[in-house]
Design a protein around this nucleic acid. Sequence first.
DNA 1: CCAATCACTTGAACATGTTCAAAAACAGGT
DNA 2: ACCTGTTTTTGAACATGTTCAAGTGATTGG
Lengths: 277, 277
Amino acid sequence: MNDRTTANTAPQTGTQADAGEAEPLPGGRARPKTGKSEQTRAAILDTAMRLFQERGYDKTTMRAIAQEAGVSVGNAYYYFESKEFLIQGFYDLMTHDHARDAASRMEGERDFARRLEIALISWLDCAADYHEFAAQFFRTAADPDSSLSPFSNESHPARETAVTLFRDVLTGSDLAPKLDTELAELLPDLLWLHLMVVVLYWVFDRTEDTARTREFVRRSTPFVARIIALSRYRAFRPLVRDAKGLIQDFILPTIGKTPLPRAESAPSRPAGRKRRG
Amino acid sequence: MNDRTTANTAPQTGTQADAGEAEPLPGGRARPKTGKSEQTRAAILDTAMRLFQERGYDKTTMRAIAQEAGVSVGNAYYYFESKEFLIQGFYDLMTHDHARDAASRMEGERDFARRLEIALISWLDCAADYHEFAAQFFRTAADPDSSLSPFSNESHPARETAVTLFRDVLTGSDLAPKLDTELAELLPDLLWLHLMVVVLYWVFDRTEDTARTREFVRRSTPFVARIIALSRYRAFRPLVRDAKGLIQDFILPTIGKTPLPRAESAPSRPAGRKRRG
DNA sequence: CCAATCACTTGAACATGTTCAAAAACAGGT
DNA sequence: ACCTGTTTTTGAACATGTTCAAGTGATTGG
């Protein structure tokens, strides 16, 4: 996945984050019209990624990026609304790398737990080179106001790509036919959430080669698979039903799915006071 | 909880964040010797809180804080290592307010689910005035390098306070005697994690008076209580045992508990490659 | 009372993200 | 070729977090 990071310097027509849409300005600001501007944009993004990797996010100044890319500072801001939006560009790149890499690694494997593990480990491998820098990305993602956040921001193309991957993890496994459709609908998003937890864990992981996170993945994936498998048994029914309700009412809408935008102001009497006692 | 935020302008000897320890420099930099410097420190922190609340974090400049507090910019940096460390000061304040408020609200209530709900709703009430601003705090907390992070940073006094509160939530409930000691040991930390999830939810919540988060708390607390209660039944034993293992090996050590720092480099062969294919 | 020391304070200087008005390059029509 | 509007590019100016050498004042030791 490292040999692709700088691939878009080449004057291809397709941008790195060719997520399909034409309107929402993928990761930056201006929608490039000419081919040359595409090149400029790519040069800036590539240079930024390289410097981020080399020196870290904070140590890399916009001036340095501009200079190394052979443009002016203002030009960088013409293509990227702010320094943080460069991260968006990176995230889009990596998500696509991950999706492709994971899909190829999963090939032939039918066991759900293993497929899930492969997908997650693949992410760790794809992100390995950016461990230091990714902390900064995560920090940004935790800002609800930022349009970079994989949460909150409805139309985040990268998330759709990732969720699709996890849908594939499920549908390609021997577990898929055994599940009722309702649960099968929820799972991709939940598995994506699982990835987010792993990412959180990874960001804070300081062990060599993030060995601890890898071990965490190896241990947690069979556990998750087991829970899903067991959820079909009668004894777990009521619990599962409640969990489903919680997820559908409160988790998925937050992630931009909004399948059930109810439960706005519930009738149940509030336990606390309203605001300012 | 709003009438206490600015309380420490008064020349009391006890600082706002009187977490007990004497060494680790509570939220800032210099350990104040004289009473006057205490006052200066408090003035700066109070002014900062007020301005953060009024204008938001980003809009509040260090110059404005200094000016309003009647000191120089450099002086603010004498007491607070950076702008972010002012957040630390705020967080310490709020954690104590929360602990006290929650404890008083729980009085008399023995039902575990309700106690938990009270504790969480209390947090939402304590934090209500700072919703806008707290997003910024959360953002900071997500940075593993920052000493403000409730994760990663081992000796975060505020977390200890919060965990203690949740221990009280449990021990004061009718559920406590029914649990084996091992689980009772884990729970306070897990409930603190639950709070962290709620906080995450809250930060992203844009509904009026964070109604959605409140509803989420009301729905999720009985669910959590039910899971804990059910965990004692035979059918759930193996699942519970696995969950315990995962938590003890991977979650708690990350939170600074480090009860079992094993599982460093596991013998199980890695599924992927090492680094850079 | 002097001087040395230390806690505290200052504000100018610095580094860096960001903005903006103007210049340059470009495209299309005449 | 020339005008006209649009896209792209520039670099100086700005805003703000942070640093630092120097200043102030009180306390202590002689």
